[in-house]
């Protein structure tokens, strides 16, 4: 197994962790973290798979470079929206996901 393939597979695992986080976590900032994780995982898969046979490949690298910048912009916009939401409602979780009393896996501090 080559090094790029190892990282591509790591990316697949990270993608899974991110997806589970995105679904399972309630705090919006945590969801944003999970989304970022999914993004990083996608970049790893993209570059890793492309470089598995060909060696260093500038084309996917350039794509990922723009992808990283877009993802920080998306994260920043997400933070702005979350803050706005918090300012308007005083909540940091989505309305449909406010925890019931008694259900308390993964405490949501912060």
């Amino acid at each position: 197994m080559s090094t790029p393939l190892l990282y591509a597979l790591t990316g697949a695992v990270l993608w899974g962790i991110g997806l589970m986080g995105l679904i399972g976590l309630r705090h919006l900032l945590r969801k944003l973290l999970a989304l970022n994780l999914i993004g990083s995982a996608t970049f790893l898969i993209l570059v890793g798979l492309a470089q598995h046979h060909n060696g260093p490949d500038p084309v996917p690298q350039a794509l990922v470079l723009t992808g990283i910048v877009v993802s920080i912009a998306a994260t920043a916009l997400g933070v702005v929206l979350i803050r706005r939401y918090f300012h308007l409602t005083g909540r940091t979780e989505l309305e449909s996901e406010v925890p019931e009393a008694g259900r308390d896996e993964e405490g949501h501090s912060g």
Partner: peptide, 23 residues
């Protein structure tokens, strides 16, 4: 390790720096 120093630079500045400060 993936021989992509460009992305490494961007990731170090953005992924580690800017995202962290923002969050």
């Amino acid at each position: 390790r993936l021989q992509a120093p460009d992305i490494a630079l961007a990731e170090a500045a953005i992924g580690a720096g800017l995202t962290g400060v923002l969050l």
